[in-house]
Simulated scan of single mutants.
Amino acid sequence: MAADTEPLAFQALGLVELLARAHDSSEQRIVSLCRRGVTSLGPVAAVGVPAAFAGLARTTLDQLGAQQAAVVAQIRFPAGGTAIEAIAGEVRGALLAGADEIDVVFPFRALLSGNADVGHDLVSACKAECRLQGRLVVTLETGELRDPQLIRSACRIAIGAGADFIKSCTDRLLTPLSDQAARIMLECIAEAGGQVGFKAAGGLRSLEDVRPVLRLVTERFAPSWVAGQRLRLGGSVLLDDLLGRLGLIETGMFY
């Protein structure tokens, strides 16, 4: 085991964003997910849930003493959509229910067909709902876009329209986050002065998967940038690996 494994695992633990799946979510599963995210070493950075469960997640985390863990409301995951007015209404409802962040899927299919305007309009409308409260996350689905120029275009559109975070994917694809996609996203964030956060998702199942992400981030930004307000690591399996490396599952301290 590398000498830096335990410190790195502890650092990564505070960056984890647990992700619920829309197709298998229920009140019981959401409560269980929130409980998983509150460890003896502190809570994870965030819990992502379908928008309908945002209020339940916020209440559960608060009852567990994890007020600092953000509730991320996933809007129309994983397919997304282009019905801007309806999606903006769902954003409004999730914020009123207690969501701290809103996660919308960038209309990547429209971009693939040559329509960049709908992406800008969708993100702008969602940002307008978040101006008084809440941060806006835009999930790009880089595994679907694939082409570096399309990924760069999606990043710039999302950031220009007001995204507070850009995220690599909904984690529904088997394709892991590529170094190329991560580099492009971080380059676009740097172009914007480093004021937009980065959420890495897709294939992050262990500390070894996290190492290259952290390396890319620290090559681009100062060490202080590696914090939950700027960087998130999406994946529920990842949490199990980190806790195991920190000896919490084996000692019965998990949950």
Rank of each mutant, 00 (worst) to 15 (best):
I159H: 09
I84R: 05
R76Y: 13
I189L: 07
D24V: 07
P107G: 13
I75A: 09
C34Q: 04
T39A: 04
T82H: 10
E90D: 10
T82K: 12
S224M: 04
R21L: 14
F108Y: 13
S40R: 13
V16W: 07
A2V: 04
L173S: 14
A88M: 11
L136S: 07
W225D: 03
V16T: 05
S113A: 13
A88Y: 11
L246W: 10
Q11H: 09
E187V: 01
A154H: 06
I102G: 05
S124A: 15
C155H: 04
I30Y: 01
E101P: 02
H23M: 10
F77A: 05
Q180R: 15
Q11R: 09
S236E: 05
A128L: 14
C126W: 04
R146K: 08
P78R: 02
I84A: 12
D179W: 15
Q63V: 06
A99E: 05
R35Q: 08
D241L: 12
V196M: 11
A54G: 00
V49K: 05
A73H: 03
I166F: 03
I249N: 05
S26R: 08
I159T: 04
A3I: 12
L132W: 15
L122C: 01
V105Q: 01
K199T: 06
R205L: 13
F198R: 03
Q74A: 14
C188H: 01
G55P: 00
T170D: 04
L243T: 00
V38K: 04
V237W: 14
D62A: 10
D62W: 03
T139P: 04
A54W: 00
G98H: 10
G81T: 08
S40Y: 08
V104E: 02
V138L: 09
G194E: 01
I102A: 05
F108V: 04
G37V: 01
A94S: 09
D241R: 10
L18Q: 05
L61H: 08
W225Q: 07
D103T: 01
G162I: 13
L216E: 12
S25N: 10
G89P: 06
R21P: 06
L19M: 12
G81N: 11
L61P: 02
G197L: 04
V213I: 15
E129R: 15
I30W: 01
A182R: 03
G235A: 06
R21Q: 14
E187Y: 04
L96S: 13
L33G: 03
A3G: 09
R131I: 13
Q11D: 03
R29T: 06
S153T: 13
G228W: 09
D103A: 01
E101A: 10
S206I: 07
G114W: 08
A97N: 04
A88C: 10
E144D: 15
G202K: 02
A12F: 04
V118I: 15
D171K: 14
V137L: 08
V237R: 15
A54I: 00
P176S: 14
A116E: 09
M253T: 11
A57E: 04
D241N: 12
L111D: 02
T251N: 14
L122I: 02
Q28R: 14
L41F: 13
L242I: 00
D164Y: 10
L140H: 03
L95T: 10
G252I: 05
T39V: 02
V47H: 02
S224G: 01
T175E: 15
K199Q: 08
I75K: 10
L173E: 11
C155W: 03
